[in-house]
Design a protein around this nucleic acid. Structure first.
Lengths: 203, 203, 203, 203
DNA sequence: CATGAATGAGATTTCATTCAT
DNA sequence: TATGAATGAAATCTCATTCAT
């Protein structure tokens, strides 16, 4: 029974988090009420509180999951690539070729954006955001640039931290624009960005 | 009497909007309660409702004001510049040299970011945001690029709409990063962006 | 306007506290819901929260008021009595002659009893209870015994703290019994207690 | 099998009741949640509901047990004493020499106090309380006084009901004070009470 | 116009109890 | 019997807005 139960619990948690992702993306964290979440998830009020102790906890867990699910497949893809330059190129392609974004990805980006703003006013959230970014997103790019430098593929005088932030700055901005003004053709802008970034860091 | 009264009304409205800018920037629109606004403005609940019919109206009016106050001084500066290339360069410098941003500007950016997200879920807000951006921000850059093309300063094959969005995409991304990660040194990134943008559009 | 308003506010607070006294006495603090209080007071939910910031605050304020209203008239009566022995006798008579207790007094005793039990599990309440008892009830009797000793009316070897507690112990027990078993004839028991107490302390 | 099962059931019930005594004493009946009871007992929610049909039933059964366990050993001790005066004296000593009270006794008193207050607002509980007191506590003392009178040990003109209540009134008051103000030295007060009570009833 | 007390819908959370397994 | 996930009524509290003064 514990095995069935544990698996069941994991599924329920995920179901709730997915519902939350949908609701928070559609309406925003603050506007989404627990009752809306209850309604959308098809569970009862109490059931949700059996899995998460507050609305905020759902938000935090959701964020963790989103970043993890965003980064993990990238990480495993990147391991298969021979050079660090190709890895960086893959990263651009991965994000830029998300066009057309599927609904689930749009939702995930929305929630991230929403969370970033909320976090800037809430220390608890900021702590989590820092951790997630530092440990997952930033670390990913940073280590590629580092290894690229060490392997002699990249210029030695580039400042790794700055270029790491630069990379994510491009990605975030592009995603934000895509979400806010979905009708615009970003493909051409994006190709430029990739070229210019790669040129700058390559020997 | 009507003249004094009108002036008084204008001042009161501005005072409320400034309070709102401060509160919304610090805590976000949804988290800021009318009571906090009342407290910060020093007015009474009723007084505020005499000038604005709802919290949302304050938000909308605030946004209009912020964008107007952001763009108008730029527009008048730009009129004094002889070439369209210089105008674009000035725009980059204007935004990028805001370092260090004064509190009021930070607040204004925060409110804009917050508003953009809210707007993406609220048709009324989206309508206003579109108007403001289309009529003010986008139009500003678009007309410079247009005139630059016509004057033979800029390449003829650039797609104006795309480059206009590209410009604002840079600015927004930079501002977002500055707000969310204020400790990072963006000056060097930004200089690059300006150079690369100007290079691309110049003949 | 402030004067009218202040008086009005005082009246509303008192009205809420009286409602609370009634409800808490009838059902107990934990069982009485805010909505019952709202219903009984005839006000709205929000109105009550304009005057008190939580249900617990109402409880604490109510207790303060009850003890104050219980002790103040006694204190002013006692000032008019010439000897300390008469003062103590008056105290017994005051409590014992409350028969038949009026509804308001019964309610007040109930709330006190209820509060004492709640307080024994809640540090905040215990602090208040201690203060109220130490500063009002205990101090009242203690100072009479003290002065009686100094004036030579009472035995010199009685332990004041113990006799003070003994006094209140009688009163509390009698009130509890009267509330819980109202049909019993306590007058005769009580007369005994008074006599025996007075005999013990008198020279 | 049924015999083992019956014994097992009895043990489970007792285990639950003991847990309840502990929890109700520590936090009070209303504040203690079923989950706390579940946690403390180490059983499951369902298990508890197999033995008791509601939280209130646990409370009622607990009270019955407490009073029974309090009175039964006294009754058997009293049977061994030759005179009714000694029996009454024993009763005083039994309660007053509970100093220092063991944790289990403190808990039991707390629950009784808590129950008395709850009962005063709940007819079901009041019925039980009346039964328990009338049939066990009051009857115990009453019959001693009755027999003492008949045996010629005690004064003939004492009113048995009143003195019975007087006795329990002392005990309850002392216990209440001991629970609420545990640091106070009641031994001396108590010795007085015993003496004065015995004197009054003895020929 | 200004005030701020009042409103009450609605938000989050708790918890006694049930019931499928 | 035993389990504990699920239920949903109900509790506390908030807050945008109104309106009598």
């Amino acid at each position: 029974m514990p095995i069935v139960s544990e698996e069941h619990k994991r599924q329920r948690r995920n179901h709730i988090l997915l519902s939350a992702q949908h609701c928070f993306a559609k309406k925003g964290y603050h506007i989404t009420s627990m009752d809306q979440l209850v309604q959308h998830s098809g569970l009862s009020r109490g059931a949700i509180y059996n899995y998460f102790k507050s609305k905020e906890e759902i938000y935090l867990e959701l964020m963790k999951g989103i970043v993890t699910r965003e980064i993990e497949p990238i990480e495993s893809q990147i391991k298969t690539l021979p050079t660090n330059l190709e890895k960086i190129a893959y990263l651009f392609d991965h994000y830029y070729q998300l066009e057309p974004m599927c609904e689930e990805q749009k939702e995930a980006f929305f929630v991230q954006l929403d969370f970033q703003l909320s976090a800037s006013r809430n220390p608890d959230m900021m702590t989590l955001l820092d951790e997630l970014h530092k440990n997952m997103k930033f670390e990913l790019v940073k280590s590629i640039l580092q290894e690229g430098k060490e392997a002699g593929e990249l210029k030695l005088n580039i400042h790794i931290d700055i270029y790491t932030h630069m990379f994510w700055s491009f990605i975030d901005a592009a995603n934000m624009q895509r979400i806010l003004f979905p009708e615009l053709p970003y493909q051409s802008i994006i190709r430029d960005q990739k070229q210019s970034f790669l040129t700058k860091i390559t020997k």
